[in-house]
């Protein structure tokens, strides 16, 4: 993957298992967001392919509709909280009754029940992120791509978001790819971890493996905070 002459990602070759929380960690600017954008077809890689369930992706829209990408700073539509959360269901042509039921369910999960009619642009930062989370999970995606979902949030909201992530995985078996540089968060919620450094995936390991016995010396240096960027 390259932007102009600058190569952003290279030698990325790994599998994400169904129902796991896969944390992609690395310093800022290392390509984590770009990687998620490629998975969601917002960027096109120069070379290589993404397989879904071991097969070539059937088509952009079909594959994209099985997943969700939550941005670090979510874009909020100038509509009510209900309409924002219902958006993914509406574009799929889901029946109104089901839309209502699912939106209420999603708002309950993120703790925003009762705020349906509020204009979403009047929400606080933490509420907006939780609303975006509800919007991302309302149509039960098989894969949830999270780009620094708790950056800029206060500790209470961080805890809430982490609880939601764990709940979604446990209750729905949603596969979650979490891009973050928050190492304590990775310790708390991830199953497996990949370390991305300067656009290269230097190690993929279990959470325990990566923290107790990293395979690459650079992984160890990054996790100990000894790496200077």
């Amino acid at each position: 993957m390259a932007f102009g002459n600058k190569e952003v990602l290279r030698n990325i070759n790994f599998e994400i298992k169904e129902g796991e929380i896969f944390a992609l960690i690395g310093p800022s600017g290392t390509g984590k967001t770009t990687f998620l954008r490629i998975l969601n077809f917002l960027e096109k890689p120069i070379k290589g392919e993404i397989k879904y369930n071991g097969m070539k992706t059937p088509g952009v829209l079909d594959t994209r509709r099985r997943m969700s990408l939550l941005f670090q700073t979510p874009a909020i539509f100038n509509k009510s909280v209900f309409e924002n959360v219902a958006y993914g269901l509406k574009v799929r042509g889901i029946e109104k009754k089901i839309v209502e039921k699912k939106v209420n369910e999603a708002l309950n999960i993120v703790g925003l029940a009762g705020m349906e009619n509020q204009n979403a642009r009047t929400l606080s930062g933490g509420e907006a992120q939780r609303m975006a989370f509800a919007r991302a999970i309302v149509y039960d995606p098989e894969i949830l791509l999270l780009d620094e979902p708790t950056a800029n949030l206060d500790p209470a909201n961080v805890t809430k978001i982490e609880e939601i992530i764990k709940r979604i995985r446990n209750e729905r078996r949603t596969t979650i790819v979490l891009a973050t540089h928050n190492i304590p968060q990775v310790r708390r919620i991830a199953d497996r971890v990949g370390i991305l450094l300067n656009g290269e995936l230097i190690e993929v390991n279990s959470k325990d493996g990566i923290f107790s016995k990293p395979k690459d010396a650079r992984s160890e240096a990054f996790l100990k905070g000894e790496m200077i960027y």
């Binding site: 829209l61 969700s68 979510p74 958006y87 574009v91 919007r135």
Partner: peptide, 8 residues
Amino acid sequence: ETVHTLGG
């Protein structure tokens, strides 16, 4: 982009 990520 959000419209696209939500399946629009």
